[in-house]
Design a protein around this nucleic acid. Structure first.
Lengths: 186, 186
DNA sequence: TGATAACGAAAACGTACGTTTCACTTTCGT
DNA sequence: ACGAAAGTGAAACGTACGTTTTCGTTATCA
């Protein structure tokens, strides 16, 4: 009744890559199966549906992103550098094994006008996590203005992600410059 | 071989509303037909395919947005106000008859990993138009730095649009504040 | 090694969707 | 008023997709 860790990993790898570069609706389950080298029977023994597989891929992504971000923050010493480390993490994550076309969570939100509760929860979790951590880091930079500065940086980060739809392959330089100006002004 | 203007309008209205709030792939052609009060035979006499209907809806949207933006700019007198008028236009457009969930062009880009040429052209046109106009307006504010400031504002505008996926129903206040800081720093 | 659980291959099912066709009716210009 | 153009309604087609089922095969571990 359970999946072997290797097959589960292969399934999540395939789902992640295909869903978040080609779009969920545009990716047939068969494509995921072919890429994972797994039979349909096995997939549906481990996951209730395509949507459940998507939710699992999102959760794994959330954990991986959190780790990447934590590491990037930990490498910095000053409050400013720790705040701006989001952009380091953004690039590291983009070039890593889970680097997708833009943002898996925004992409999922874009595909579902009113997402099923399982997905809605994952999306809310990701946004809240992003916002909460940015506000905390911003509070260290500009005490009393953390809320405001953090919300601004959330917009910048989101903007950088969405800009990948306009000009693929871009760097985070513009976002970094904007963030630096905002930090300096606060 | 041609469509009456009233039926074409009804089709484009329905397509616009349903495609850009529910997603293109998630919206069956039948839903568009039902909303428009038009038969399938009529739709396919006027448009080659669902995708062609989407392209037509995007083109009409581009024209409407351009008009809205032009009007908002024309209402301002100082270079700074004319540059920041994008956000007035963003709100006006959002509350207007073509106000969608976030951005029709980004949404279409998100749904197609490698869009058919007809769509790719529309998306490139929209981005280029946005960038080019922002750079021009920014050049009036900060001569010699228009390219840089315009690109930054493009990120802010895109971020504001994408943030609608995270927290629906938000205002442009944060984006406006970020933009103001950027203008002041330039 | 042998029992148990996981997996593969392939077929089948039901359904939803984009698109076409056909026979008939309405609208519009002259 | 009349003929052409445009629209309707419903049915049908082909296909693609998510999911289930069956059965024979392989891996895992006590």
């Amino acid at each position: 009744m359970a999946l072997r860790t290797s097959t589960e990993t292969r399934l999540l790898d395939a789902a992640d890559e295909l869903f978040f570069t080609g779009g969920v609706a545009a990716t047939p389950v068969d494509a995921v199966l072919a890429r994972a080298g797994v039979s349909a029977a096995t997939l549906y023994r481990g996951f209730a549906s395509k949507e459940a597989l998507l939710a699992a891929a999102l959760e794994r992504r959330h954990r991986a992103w959190t780790r990447t971000w934590d590491d990037a923050v930990a490498q910095q010493t000053t409050p400013q550098a720790r705040l701006l480390a989001v952009f380091d993490a953004l690039e590291t994550f983009r070039d890593g094994p889970l680097g997708s076309r833009w943002c898996a969570f925004l992409g999922t939100a874009a595909e579902h006008a009113s997402p099923p509760p399982e997905l809605a929860a994952a999306l809310r979790l990701e946004t809240d996590h992003l916002r909460h951590r940015l506000v905390d880091l911003a509070e260290e930079v500009a005490p009393g203005r953390g809320e405001q500065l953090g919300e601004q940086l959330l917009l910048v980060v989101t903007g950088d992600l969405a800009m990948r739809l306009r000009t693929p392959g871009r760097s985070t330089d513009v976002a970094r410059a904007v963030a630096t100006t905002l930090v300096r002004a606060a």
